[in-house]
Design a protein around this nucleic acid. Sequence first.
RNA 1: GGAGAGGUGGCUGAGUGGCUGAAAGCGUCCGCCUGCUAAGCGGGAAUACGGUGACAAACUGUAUCGAGGGUUCGAAUCCCUCCCUCUCCGCCA
Length: 425
Amino acid sequence: MIPLRFIRQHQEAVRQGLLDKGMAGDGLDEILALDEQLREQVTQVESLKARRNQVSQEVGRLKQAGRSAEAQVKAMGAVSLEIKALDQAVHALQEKVDQRLLWLPNLPHPSVPVGPGASANRVVATVGDPVRHSFQAQDHLSLLENLNLVDFEAGARIAGRGFPVYIGRGARLERALINFMLDLHTREHGYTEIYPPFLATRKATQTTGQLPKLEEDMYVTTTDDLFLIPTAEVPITNMFQGQIIPEDDLPLSFVAFSACFRREAGSYGKETKGLLRLHQFNKVELVKFVHPDTSYVELETVRAHAEEVLRRLGLTYRVVELCSGDLSFAAAKCYDLELYAPAMDSWLEVSSCSNFEAFQARRGQIRFRRNDTGKLNYIHTINGSGVATPRLMVALLESGQQRDGSVVLPQALVPYYGEETVVPL
RNA sequence: GGAGAGGUGGCUGAGUGGCUGAAAGCGUCCGCCUGCUAAGCGGGAAUACGGUGACAAACUGUAUCGAGGGUUCGAAUCCCUCCCUCUCCGCCA
């Protein structure tokens, strides 16, 4: 949420930010017009209320003195009716303004490259050399099939396409990846492990910014109006909804494994084969609640923590700084981590590390009290995937495959998986 | 799902129609005092939005005692609806 006062005072900067983010600025004019109208009416009701309060007190005094207050009571009866009518108008206007504000995305940070889409993104680092196999490499689909790790048809019978069933060693490998990542982040990076609910309320989902705009991408349970989480960011961030965090507790760092559910509306046709785009997948997510002064330092930290997963697994990846037009709704700045998949010769996004600044905190009223001034301020939220498993598995299989069709796993994974190689049965 | 109890400031907890934005305590901040610490003494401090003002200080208005409605000149206090928490019962992995 962008604060209304800020919009009022920095109209052109906000307009430009919205344009950079690929959103027409016309919503802004409407908000500003409504806001002006609103403030005018509010001033009007408030002065009526001020008068009523004053006279009502007088009535109290008169009655206590045993004197009549009939004239005052009568006059205020009329005023109260007027107030009621005006109040209704004000509420309706307020509701309109609030709704429109919820549809405004966060503004890009000044350091973010301006551009409309992926072409304007900036590769800021590449780690490792793209693997070149000396034999005819299999893509992940055939590896999954030949090694019998995933059963897509069974998943389709259960829930439709996009819901893979991991089987046998595939399930074990998936579990190994999750445990490896959780251990890394909790033991070495200092995160507190969370096991969150996988469903969240409309309000919670609004806090993190998926709603109202991305409702069509969410699975919802109609009888209770609960949403299946698209990422653990939703439950973790909302643990502190409406809370005031002591300044000395900052930063708070949490890591959670969760299943993630995404309808992926409108993305059919592309990447629908295999594990590249799913309706349900697993992810280990990092979430930090940080002091506003340090949020951009913390963003780099989270990014480093996410990168560490890929480093430990010896995978080739690159870091992409997203341009303004590619930023998600709530993000002010974001790095994507992309793994190299040799058989497909492509880069697969496995992590997004974003600074939301106070955008989510404002929607969810997450604040801290400053020790020096005693004032309440919004904290900043940072999160990063650390990381999502399906494409990680893709890169792992395609990179580690051998001429004989087996896959050699990275050493870091062996204690978790229990074996060094996955061999064809 | 059934019955009951309850939701008040950072926390605990008073408060059943006007003098309550809200007692008291804890915590907190400032000052004093004691050669350190603890204790003690005095004082300050809610949040949001609006107005005047320099997007300062300050002053001022309105709202806020779970949420939304209602009654009333006036509601934390009375009525209705909803949400949440706790206890007991039922059901259940």
